[in-house]
Amino acid sequence: MKRLLCVAACVLSAAVQAQAIPVPPPVSKPDAATFNYDLRPRQIAEGTWVIEGAVADFSRANGCNIINTAFITTGAGVVVINTGPSRLYGEQQRRAIERLTREPVQRVLSLNLHPDYFFGNQAWADRPTQALPGSIAGMQAEGGAYADNLYRLCGDWMRGTESSPARESVPPQTLPLGQHRLELMRLQGHTADDLVLLDHHTGVLFVGGLVFAERVPTTPHADFERWLASLDVLEQLITSGRVKTVVPSHGPVHSGLAGVRQTRDWLRWLTVLMQTSAERGLDLGEVLRTPVPERFARWAAQPAELHRSLSQWYPRYEQRALAGPAPGR
């Protein structure tokens, strides 16, 4: 009980500290009649552009484009970060990049195994497509199921799309490219292999799915304890003075710790809810009817993402509660 009260107090403290992140008005207007994503790169730092997706859930109205992709022109070649949810997105992303730079694309990075990070890889078949080894294994194992789901959700936006996992594994390393020094780091929690990229030249930190801003986090491959530990690592990095801008894969680009704190607040609230509900003997239906705290109510993908998380993870908390404490405790 003392431990639960301590965790609840931490959750409350995080909620007090959490900051709202202004959500800019959408700049692109996807056209379902022509299947034009209307991608508009926005420069956020020297040589660094972000193509912002909708802060929303997958839908045909947004072409299932809910991810932030990016590219860095280093002077020694372009690095592309994430390739979107479909072949069409990847093709339009490539054209958008070619309109802004004549530098050749040197490599294409996917920050984790989820489909909107790599389903545009078809458009980059002539370039090295790279990810962490565990992400590639996950892409290969789950790509078919991802495709089935996205075709159902997105319809004709997915025309001609096939799962195209990254072809080359990339280890954690530091890449000197032109004036830029790109540090690739492997963290865990949102998935088993979360690639994070810090550009030491500009101070832009690409945090992938470890940070969600103004949106409920997705959790199909989550390890909550490791995720919270990774958020601690990111907080230390951001407060070190080396980071000026944080780019999550889902939600607005921002500065400071607001996105880290929002994500941590949600994960703590969610896990405490599941643990205490299981110990009280509540069934899933009862937990699904639990009111969401006001601080989360306005976030995108609410309540759908919460319901997905509870449906997947709550049975495990029930099993633990029924099994009782481990011997010796």
Rank of each mutant, 00 (worst) to 15 (best):
M1Q: 11
V7R: 03
A8C: 11
L12H: 09
L12M: 04
L12Q: 11
S13D: 14
Q17P: 07
P22E: 12
P24M: 13
P25Q: 15
S28H: 07
K29P: 09
Y37L: 00
A45M: 12
E46V: 02
T48M: 14
V50D: 03
A54G: 02
S59P: 04
C64I: 03
C64P: 04
C64W: 00
I67E: 02
N68T: 03
N68D: 00
F71K: 01
I72H: 00
V78W: 00
V79C: 01
I81M: 01
N82T: 04
T83A: 08
S86L: 02
R87F: 01
Q92L: 11
Q93S: 09
R94V: 04
A96C: 06
L100F: 06
L100I: 13
T101Y: 00
P104K: 15
R107I: 07
R107V: 11
V108K: 06
S110A: 11
L113V: 14
H114I: 05
H114R: 08
H114F: 08
P115C: 15
Y117T: 04
F118H: 07
A123W: 01
A125P: 04
T129A: 05
Q130Y: 12
P133V: 07
S135D: 15
G138V: 05
M139S: 05
G143K: 08
G143T: 12
Y146C: 04
A147H: 11
L153T: 12
G155Q: 09
D156M: 15
W157F: 09
W157A: 05
M158C: 13
R159Q: 13
G160W: 13
T161D: 07
E162Y: 14
S164L: 10
P171N: 14
P171E: 15
P172G: 09
P172T: 08
P176N: 13
R186Q: 14
L187Q: 00
L187M: 13
H190V: 05
T191R: 00
A192Q: 07
A192W: 05
A192C: 13
D193R: 01
L195H: 00
L195A: 06
H201S: 10
G203A: 05
V204A: 05
L205I: 04
G208S: 12
G208Q: 06
G209Y: 10
H221Y: 07
A222H: 04
A222Q: 00
D223W: 03
E225M: 14
L228H: 11
V233M: 12
L234R: 03
Q236H: 08
S240R: 07
R242T: 07
T245L: 10
V246L: 03
G251A: 08
P252S: 11
T263N: 08
R268Y: 13
R268E: 14
L270Q: 04
T271I: 12
M274H: 09
E279N: 12
R280W: 05
L282P: 00
D283M: 14
R289K: 13
T290E: 14
P291H: 01
V292G: 01
P293C: 02
A300Y: 00
A301Y: 09
A304R: 15
E305D: 11
H307T: 10
H307A: 15
L310S: 09
S311C: 08
Q312A: 12
Q312Y: 13
Q319V: 10
L322R: 15
R329S: 04
